[in-house]
Amino acid sequence: MNDSIRTFLRQPSGLLGLAILFLVCLAAALAPILYPGSPWDMVGAPLQPPGTAGSLLGTDTMGRDIASGILHGASVSLMIGIASTIAALAVGVTLGAIAGYAGGMVDRLIVRFIEIFQTIPNFVLAILLVAILTPSISTIILAIGLVSWPPLARLTRVQVQSIAAREFVQAARCQGLGSMSILLRHVIPNAISPIIVTGSMTVASAILIEAALSFMGLGDPNYMSWGYMIGAGRTVIRMAWWASLFPGLAILLTAVAINLIGEALNDALNPRISRS
Protein backbone atom coordinates (compact mmCIF):
# COMPACT_ATOMS: atom_id res chain seq x y z
CA MET A 1 0.00 0.00 0.00
CA ASN A 2 2.88 2.40 0.80
CA ASP A 3 4.25 1.64 -2.63
CA SER A 4 0.92 2.58 -4.15
CA ILE A 5 0.85 5.90 -2.33
CA ARG A 6 4.39 6.61 -3.50
CA THR A 7 3.52 5.79 -7.14
CA PHE A 8 0.45 7.99 -6.87
CA LEU A 9 2.40 10.92 -5.47
CA ARG A 10 5.05 10.61 -8.16
CA GLN A 11 2.52 11.56 -10.86
CA PRO A 12 2.18 15.28 -11.49
CA SER A 13 -1.27 14.88 -13.08
CA GLY A 14 -2.64 13.06 -10.03
CA LEU A 15 -1.24 15.74 -7.74
CA LEU A 16 -2.78 18.46 -9.91
CA GLY A 17 -6.13 16.67 -9.65
CA LEU A 18 -5.81 16.46 -5.88
CA ALA A 19 -4.94 20.15 -5.67
CA ILE A 20 -7.98 21.20 -7.74
CA LEU A 21 -10.28 18.91 -5.78
CA PHE A 22 -8.88 20.34 -2.53
CA LEU A 23 -9.77 23.85 -3.78
CA VAL A 24 -13.31 22.72 -4.62
CA CYS A 25 -13.70 21.22 -1.13
CA LEU A 26 -12.28 24.41 0.35
CA ALA A 27 -14.85 26.43 -1.65
CA ALA A 28 -17.61 24.22 -0.28
CA ALA A 29 -16.33 24.62 3.29
CA LEU A 30 -15.83 28.39 3.06
CA ALA A 31 -19.17 29.15 1.35
CA PRO A 32 -21.12 29.83 4.57
CA ILE A 33 -18.27 32.03 5.89
CA LEU A 34 -17.48 34.07 2.76
CA TYR A 35 -21.12 34.34 1.66
CA PRO A 36 -23.19 33.90 4.82
CA GLY A 37 -26.46 34.88 3.11
CA SER A 38 -28.55 32.52 0.98
CA PRO A 39 -27.26 32.21 -2.62
CA TRP A 40 -30.88 32.74 -3.73
CA ASP A 41 -30.97 36.27 -2.26
CA MET A 42 -30.76 39.35 -4.43
CA VAL A 43 -27.52 41.25 -3.72
CA GLY A 44 -27.57 43.94 -6.38
CA ALA A 45 -28.89 45.02 -9.76
CA PRO A 46 -29.54 42.13 -12.19
CA LEU A 47 -27.06 41.20 -14.95
CA GLN A 48 -24.11 43.16 -13.59
CA PRO A 49 -20.82 42.21 -15.30
CA PRO A 50 -18.02 40.64 -13.21
CA GLY A 51 -16.14 43.00 -10.92
CA THR A 52 -18.87 45.62 -10.57
CA ALA A 53 -20.42 46.70 -7.27
CA GLY A 54 -18.82 44.11 -5.04
CA SER A 55 -19.85 41.03 -7.03
CA LEU A 56 -16.68 39.23 -8.08
CA LEU A 57 -18.20 37.19 -10.94
CA GLY A 58 -21.25 39.35 -11.72
CA THR A 59 -24.95 38.82 -11.03
CA ASP A 60 -27.68 36.85 -12.83
CA THR A 61 -31.18 37.76 -14.05
CA MET A 62 -32.51 38.05 -10.49
CA GLY A 63 -29.51 39.99 -9.14
CA ARG A 64 -28.12 36.92 -7.38
CA ASP A 65 -24.36 36.75 -6.88
CA ILE A 66 -22.73 34.23 -9.26
CA ALA A 67 -19.66 33.73 -7.02
CA SER A 68 -21.88 32.98 -4.02
CA GLY A 69 -23.88 30.47 -6.11
CA ILE A 70 -20.70 28.71 -7.26
CA LEU A 71 -19.33 28.36 -3.71
CA HIS A 72 -22.66 27.17 -2.29
CA GLY A 73 -23.17 24.83 -5.27
CA ALA A 74 -19.84 23.08 -4.66
CA SER A 75 -21.00 21.14 -1.60
CA VAL A 76 -24.24 20.04 -3.33
CA SER A 77 -22.36 18.78 -6.40
CA LEU A 78 -19.75 16.91 -4.36
CA MET A 79 -22.35 15.44 -2.00
CA ILE A 80 -24.63 14.19 -4.79
CA GLY A 81 -21.63 12.88 -6.76
CA ILE A 82 -20.31 10.86 -3.83
CA ALA A 83 -23.66 9.67 -2.46
CA SER A 84 -24.94 8.46 -5.83
CA THR A 85 -21.62 6.69 -6.48
CA ILE A 86 -21.97 4.89 -3.15
CA ALA A 87 -25.51 3.87 -4.16
CA ALA A 88 -24.24 2.66 -7.55
CA LEU A 89 -21.38 0.74 -5.86
CA ALA A 90 -23.81 -0.92 -3.44
CA VAL A 91 -26.00 -2.23 -6.27
CA GLY A 92 -23.21 -2.88 -8.78
CA VAL A 93 -20.74 -4.65 -6.49
CA THR A 94 -23.47 -6.79 -4.89
CA LEU A 95 -24.96 -7.95 -8.18
CA GLY A 96 -21.57 -8.32 -9.87
CA ALA A 97 -20.12 -10.33 -6.98
CA ILE A 98 -23.13 -12.67 -6.83
CA ALA A 99 -23.02 -13.22 -10.61
CA GLY A 100 -19.27 -13.78 -10.71
CA TYR A 101 -19.15 -16.08 -7.69
CA ALA A 102 -22.33 -18.11 -8.24
CA GLY A 103 -21.94 -18.64 -11.99
CA GLY A 104 -24.41 -20.79 -13.94
CA MET A 105 -28.07 -19.80 -14.18
CA VAL A 106 -27.81 -16.97 -11.61
CA ASP A 107 -24.91 -15.48 -13.56
CA ARG A 108 -26.78 -15.63 -16.85
CA LEU A 109 -29.86 -13.98 -15.33
CA ILE A 110 -27.87 -11.14 -13.79
CA VAL A 111 -25.89 -10.56 -16.98
CA ARG A 112 -29.15 -10.29 -18.91
CA PHE A 113 -30.43 -7.80 -16.35
CA ILE A 114 -27.25 -5.72 -16.67
CA GLU A 115 -27.55 -5.78 -20.47
CA ILE A 116 -31.12 -4.50 -20.31
CA PHE A 117 -30.04 -1.60 -18.10
CA GLN A 118 -27.18 -0.81 -20.46
CA THR A 119 -29.59 -0.64 -23.40
CA ILE A 120 -31.90 1.88 -21.75
CA PRO A 121 -30.78 5.46 -22.52
CA ASN A 122 -29.72 6.20 -18.96
CA PHE A 123 -30.08 9.96 -18.94
CA VAL A 124 -33.68 9.62 -20.13
CA LEU A 125 -34.37 7.12 -17.33
CA ALA A 126 -32.84 9.53 -14.81
CA ILE A 127 -35.09 12.34 -16.08
CA LEU A 128 -38.15 10.11 -15.86
CA LEU A 129 -37.33 8.98 -12.31
CA VAL A 130 -36.68 12.46 -10.94
CA ALA A 131 -39.65 14.03 -12.76
CA ILE A 132 -42.18 11.44 -11.59
CA LEU A 133 -40.87 11.00 -8.04
CA THR A 134 -40.61 14.82 -7.75
CA PRO A 135 -37.17 16.50 -7.62
CA SER A 136 -35.31 16.39 -4.30
CA ILE A 137 -31.78 15.51 -3.20
CA SER A 138 -32.80 11.94 -2.37
CA THR A 139 -34.64 11.21 -5.65
CA ILE A 140 -31.72 12.71 -7.61
CA ILE A 141 -29.25 10.46 -5.77
CA LEU A 142 -31.53 7.46 -6.31
CA ALA A 143 -31.87 8.22 -10.03
CA ILE A 144 -28.15 8.76 -10.67
CA GLY A 145 -27.27 5.67 -8.62
CA LEU A 146 -29.79 3.60 -10.53
CA VAL A 147 -28.36 4.55 -13.93
CA SER A 148 -24.66 4.34 -12.94
CA TRP A 149 -24.34 0.81 -11.54
CA PRO A 150 -24.14 -1.39 -14.70
CA PRO A 151 -20.45 -0.75 -15.59
CA LEU A 152 -19.49 -1.34 -11.94
CA ALA A 153 -21.45 -4.62 -11.88
CA ARG A 154 -19.73 -5.81 -15.09
CA LEU A 155 -16.30 -5.01 -13.74
CA THR A 156 -16.95 -6.64 -10.36
CA ARG A 157 -18.30 -9.78 -12.03
CA VAL A 158 -15.17 -10.24 -14.17
CA GLN A 159 -12.87 -9.48 -11.22
CA VAL A 160 -14.65 -11.88 -8.86
CA GLN A 161 -14.66 -14.58 -11.53
CA SER A 162 -10.91 -14.41 -11.96
CA ILE A 163 -10.11 -14.20 -8.23
CA ALA A 164 -12.55 -17.00 -7.31
CA ALA A 165 -10.61 -19.41 -9.55
CA ARG A 166 -7.31 -18.81 -7.69
CA GLU A 167 -5.75 -21.40 -5.44
CA PHE A 168 -6.01 -19.50 -2.17
CA VAL A 169 -9.78 -19.35 -2.62
CA GLN A 170 -9.91 -23.09 -3.18
CA ALA A 171 -7.78 -23.51 -0.06
CA ALA A 172 -10.26 -21.42 1.92
CA ARG A 173 -13.08 -23.55 0.59
CA CYS A 174 -11.23 -26.75 1.62
CA GLN A 175 -10.96 -25.37 5.14
CA GLY A 176 -14.74 -25.38 5.25
CA LEU A 177 -15.40 -21.64 5.13
CA GLY A 178 -18.89 -20.67 3.97
CA SER A 179 -19.46 -19.00 0.58
CA MET A 180 -20.42 -15.71 2.18
CA SER A 181 -17.27 -15.37 4.26
CA ILE A 182 -15.02 -16.51 1.38
CA LEU A 183 -16.60 -13.87 -0.84
CA LEU A 184 -16.40 -11.08 1.75
CA ARG A 185 -13.04 -11.92 3.33
CA HIS A 186 -10.96 -13.36 0.49
CA VAL A 187 -12.44 -12.60 -2.93
CA ILE A 188 -13.72 -9.03 -2.72
CA PRO A 189 -10.66 -7.53 -0.92
CA ASN A 190 -8.47 -8.92 -3.71
CA ALA A 191 -10.81 -7.76 -6.46
CA ILE A 192 -11.42 -4.27 -5.17
CA SER A 193 -8.68 -2.04 -6.67
CA PRO A 194 -10.00 -1.69 -10.25
CA ILE A 195 -13.45 -1.17 -8.74
CA ILE A 196 -12.09 1.73 -6.65
CA VAL A 197 -10.62 3.29 -9.81
CA THR A 198 -13.84 2.99 -11.82
CA GLY A 199 -15.81 4.15 -8.77
CA SER A 200 -13.76 7.33 -8.55
CA MET A 201 -14.45 8.09 -12.23
CA THR A 202 -18.16 7.41 -11.55
CA VAL A 203 -18.17 10.36 -9.14
CA ALA A 204 -17.21 12.66 -12.05
CA SER A 205 -19.91 11.30 -14.33
CA ALA A 206 -22.47 11.52 -11.49
CA ILE A 207 -21.61 15.20 -11.06
CA LEU A 208 -22.11 15.72 -14.81
CA ILE A 209 -25.50 13.93 -14.72
CA GLU A 210 -26.60 15.99 -11.71
CA ALA A 211 -25.62 19.18 -13.55
CA ALA A 212 -27.59 18.10 -16.63
CA LEU A 213 -30.65 17.22 -14.52
CA SER A 214 -30.70 20.57 -12.76
CA PHE A 215 -30.06 22.30 -16.10
CA MET A 216 -33.30 20.67 -17.28
CA GLY A 217 -35.07 22.15 -14.26
CA LEU A 218 -34.99 18.92 -12.24
CA GLY A 219 -32.73 20.06 -9.41
CA ASP A 220 -33.72 20.19 -5.75
CA PRO A 221 -35.43 23.60 -5.44
CA ASN A 222 -33.94 24.09 -1.95
CA TYR A 223 -30.29 23.96 -3.00
CA MET A 224 -28.28 26.12 -5.39
CA SER A 225 -26.69 24.01 -8.09
CA TRP A 226 -24.21 24.70 -10.89
CA GLY A 227 -26.43 23.11 -13.52
CA TYR A 228 -29.40 25.24 -12.45
CA MET A 229 -27.24 28.39 -12.77
CA ILE A 230 -26.29 27.51 -16.35
CA GLY A 231 -29.94 26.78 -17.16
CA ALA A 232 -30.96 30.15 -15.75
CA GLY A 233 -28.16 31.89 -17.66
CA ARG A 234 -29.04 30.20 -20.96
CA THR A 235 -31.88 32.56 -21.84
CA VAL A 236 -29.77 35.69 -21.25
CA ILE A 237 -26.52 34.50 -22.83
CA ARG A 238 -26.58 37.38 -25.35
CA MET A 239 -26.50 39.94 -22.53
CA ALA A 240 -24.69 38.12 -19.73
CA TRP A 241 -22.12 35.51 -20.74
CA TRP A 242 -20.79 35.35 -17.17
CA ALA A 243 -24.01 33.86 -15.81
CA SER A 244 -23.35 30.58 -17.66
CA LEU A 245 -19.56 30.64 -18.24
CA PHE A 246 -18.38 30.50 -14.60
CA PRO A 247 -20.66 27.75 -13.23
CA GLY A 248 -19.70 25.63 -16.26
CA LEU A 249 -16.00 26.14 -15.55
CA ALA A 250 -16.63 24.98 -11.97
CA ILE A 251 -18.23 21.73 -13.21
CA LEU A 252 -15.47 21.22 -15.78
CA LEU A 253 -12.64 21.75 -13.27
CA THR A 254 -14.20 19.41 -10.71
CA ALA A 255 -14.79 16.65 -13.26
CA VAL A 256 -11.28 17.00 -14.75
CA ALA A 257 -9.76 16.86 -11.25
CA ILE A 258 -11.62 13.68 -10.36
CA ASN A 259 -10.69 12.01 -13.65
CA LEU A 260 -7.01 12.95 -13.18
CA ILE A 261 -7.09 11.42 -9.69
CA GLY A 262 -8.79 8.32 -11.09
CA GLU A 263 -6.12 7.85 -13.74
CA ALA A 264 -3.31 8.32 -11.23
CA LEU A 265 -5.05 5.84 -8.89
CA ASN A 266 -5.23 3.41 -11.78
CA ASP A 267 -1.49 3.61 -12.33
CA ALA A 268 -0.83 3.26 -8.60
CA LEU A 269 -3.23 0.39 -7.84
CA ASN A 270 -3.04 -1.62 -11.06
CA PRO A 271 0.62 -1.33 -12.06
CA ARG A 272 0.52 -4.40 -14.28
CA ILE A 273 -2.46 -3.22 -16.30
CA SER A 274 -1.19 0.29 -16.85
CA ARG A 275 2.32 -0.78 -17.87
CA SER A 276 1.27 -3.39 -20.40
Binding site: L208, S244, P247, G248, L252, A255, V256, I258
Partner: peptide, 13 residues
Protein backbone atom coordinates in the same frame (compact mmCIF):
# COMPACT_ATOMS: atom_id res chain seq x y z
CA UNK B 1 -9.28 14.84 -21.28
CA UNK B 2 -10.90 18.27 -20.91
CA UNK B 3 -13.68 17.64 -23.46
CA UNK B 4 -14.50 14.35 -21.76
CA UNK B 5 -15.15 16.20 -18.49
CA UNK B 6 -17.17 19.03 -20.07
CA UNK B 7 -20.92 19.27 -19.44
CA UNK B 8 -22.46 18.89 -22.93
CA UNK B 9 -25.06 21.62 -22.52
CA UNK B 10 -22.47 24.13 -21.32
CA UNK B 11 -20.17 23.31 -24.23
CA UNK B 12 -23.10 24.01 -26.58
CA UNK B 13 -23.78 27.35 -24.93
Amino acid sequence: LILYATPVFWFGL
